[in-house]
Design a protein around this nucleic acid. Structure first.
Lengths: 297, 297
DNA sequence: CCGCGGTTATGCGTTTGGCGTATAATCCCA
DNA sequence: TGGGATTATACGCCAAACGCATAACCGCGG
């Protein structure tokens, strides 16, 4: 059908079925029939036939006006898809959690841009849930996400980047706030602030699992939509929370971040990507992020 | 090809070739082969096949991201074309010469909007040349244009709207400026200002023709790009010009518009439209403009 | 351990839609 | 009144696409 429409453009340029057919590499009767079938589908004549050639009708002009940008967009989109298929990716879109970026993502970006100057990097600071839907909609090529993505191993490929420790989030005046490290069991009886399932899917399950191993069942004080809100409610409502130990993270005022000493208290930083072959640029980026995370850590 | 791409969307929604084939009304083997052929053209797999269904690859997601807006645009454009073919035009775009509009176009617009409230009228104040190219590109449905369009009867349909007289454009201090009417022959020896061929195609030929019938050959003083420029140069360089007798036209300062008395000195106001069937709205508009022009005139 | 229900892939015969060649019908112009 | 254009039609052929039947594979549960 698109080819028929393209033919219409050529016929309008040439003003003659003969010449248009020559340009299109088909015979004149074929072009005539193509046009007839298209006109039947549209429901009106696109050209007035004469002995000196063909002249567009208003409908023909209208069709070109409406369809020309569509055909151009189609060609551009098709070229993009072909480029992607051949690994000649022109862009790489990475979703990340603001907290994790500075330590694991930033150091690699300079190196990547030097090695692949032709690839434009897009960075999106998004919640894990946003990253997942963006991955599903194809708006993202990579997602730097936490352990919560483990359950999505079916849906996406995952690369383990680093295994982090855990820090307890305590209000500054909490009795344990001054400790260098604490065992998770000492948080028994505390009431936990947890991100909502829509904001950070799986986080609640992860925290519950840790508490279970530590020997108690956590009581939930409430759910939040952003990490800043978590901090605020920990302070305001004397709750506690658990957070992956992103290195170099500065605790906000009123908050103490105390490392959890238990060996089992870990959190996997994983990189999710869509199924299928990786382009060389993407492969290197994944590799380097892994090195940067494991090397100095 | 577009149908293949649509199929990809459905398969991504369903996650299963079986269900997608059912929704698409084709057999599963057919859908499998369609997908295979599309993947071969793209140059990479769009889905990973598993025993539990299919999962999109990055390439598949990318294809949907690129092609979904294209397909939507295609559908919208197609609907527009179909509507146009059935005469259910949602808009009517009219080009007009500023000078002629007030007298012939404005009175009809109110009536038209009452009769066809669902049709959006677009009015474009353009030079005749601009109107012609706009007609050719399908950006205009009607063009209110002068006799210069007569030579284009091959290319477009024309409706004679009115036959106007002619006025001589004279500087205010010209010896003939005070006359009630003049014969064209008295302009012999004057030097004429004429719009350029690109601004008002055919106008120069029309003026030459009138002068020839009046018994002399005009001398050209220069060409202008707009009617305001014509007035300015008539005053500044003591030239003369000829203008269709748009009724109710107010002469600008320094200019006298003297009616030409010769019977042959006429100018046809014509309405050009693209070839092919007219929608009812367009037909009425053309009819009413003609009535408005002939009735009181 | 085996079979059942689910998946996708493949082979085969048929159909149909589209193409090209040859030809007709028409018009403009010399 | 022909010659050189034009577009439309008739006919035969072929290839692409479809559906049916079946193969191959997987997971799960008895």
């Amino acid at each position: 059908m698109l080819e028929r429409i393209r033919s219409v453009f050529v016929v309008m340029e040439e003003g003659s079925l003969n010449r248009a057919a020559a340009r299109l590499g088909v015979s004149q009767p074929t072009l005539t029939r193509q046009l007839q079938s298209l006109e039947q589908e549209v429901g009106g004549p696109l050209f007035e036939r004469g002995t000196g050639g063909v002249r567009p009708t208003g409908l023909g002009y209208r069709l070109r006006e409406e369809m020309l940008p569509v055909v151009r967009a189609y060609d551009a989109a098709w070229a993009e898809v072909l480029a992607h298929a051949q690994g000649r990716q022109s862009q790489l879109r990475i979703g990340y959690l603001g907290l994790a970026a500075a330590r694991y993502l930033t150091p690699v970006l300079g190196r990547f841009q030097k090695a692949y100057p032709e690839i434009k990097l897009w960075l999106f600071d998004q919640t894990p849930q946003e990253q997942l839907t963006a991955l599903r909609e194809g708006r993202l090529d990579l997602a730097l996400i936490g352990q919560e993505g483990a359950s999505l191993g079916e849906e996406f490929y995952q690369h383990r980047v680093a295994k982090l420790g855990v820090r307890a989030v305590l209000p500054f005046n909490h009795p344990l706030a001054g400790q260098a490290t604490i065992g998770l069991a000492r948080l028994k009886g505390e009431r936990f602030i947890v991100p909502s399932e829509t904001a950070v899917p799986g986080r609640k399950r992860w925290m519950a699992q840790l508490c279970r191993v530590a020997g108690f069942r956590p009581q939930w004080l409430g759910e939040t939509e952003a990490v800043g809100e978590t901090f605020a409610r920990v302070v305001a409502e004397s709750g506690v929370s658990l957070l992956p130990d992103y290195l170099q993270m500065i605790p906000p005022p009123g908050i103490a971040l105390v490392p959890v000493s238990d060996r089992f208290a870990t959190w996997e930083l994983t990189l999710l990507r869509q199924r299928g072959r990786m382009s060389p640029g993407c492969r290197d980026l994944v590799k380097w992020i892994g090195e940067a995370a494991r090397g100095p850590g």
